[in-house]
Amino acid sequence: MSASQSAVRSRAEAVQVSRTFDWMILFTLFCAVLGGYHIHYMLTGGDWDFWTDWKDRRLWVTVAPIVSITFPAAVQACLWWRYKLPLGATLSVLALMLGEWINRYMNFWGWTYFPVNICFPSNLIPGALVLDVVLLLGNSMTLTAVVGGMAYGLLFYPGNWPIIAPLHVPVEYNGMMMTLADLQGYHYVRTGTPEYIRMVEKGTLRTFGKDVAPVSAFFSAFVSIIIYFLWHFFGRWFSKTDFISDDAT
């Protein structure tokens, strides 16, 4: 067989090879995003995502969407620009959360015995689904950045509230009031994570009183829009095929 001849002998075989190729790329992409996104998110979101006593109304709500909209934006750019596939955000977040769950269960619980109910990951899936849907329906990266990015930031807190609310029930403990999440952080000893390292409930949003979470979410949503644009361009740049000569494409 010469180099100019096809590797397949029939249309059915071509379809079969194409499908095999689909699964191989999808699997590789899923694993690559899982690794890269996981490292990125652990380095930037880190403790806010690790521990329930870091999941507060201000900084967790602000930081988590901003640092997690990155890979979804980049992968969306690649898959939409090249393949018109509106699943980049969902694929990224599913990969991340699979990696996170493996990490939390195998490492946090399996090796160091922190109960899973103190170290479960944040839920990012609602925002990712809406990002993909806005891209599908709007067919516009700009619209996805503005509307999808905004939704991604705004949906984060309500998407997680059913999971963390039970841990915000107050308890009186030796004469002090704290939430069950605070008590978890106090009970389950972390020698390398002293209480003062926690960045929670800090900031200058005091005039909003107890309604600070929506304000934080809006701020996070605005910044998410900017980060979406930035990482969208990273995604486009990384999905270029400049290394392939024109006559080969």
Partner: peptide, 22 residues
């Protein structure tokens, strides 16, 4: 709808919650 409904039902189930203490 699911986000809104789950948040509403959670607020109904846990009417008393407080912020993290620091």
């Amino acid at each position: 709808v699911l986000v809104a409904a789950s948040m509403a039902s959670t607020n109904e189930k846990y009417p008393v919650t407080t912020p993290l203490q620091a």
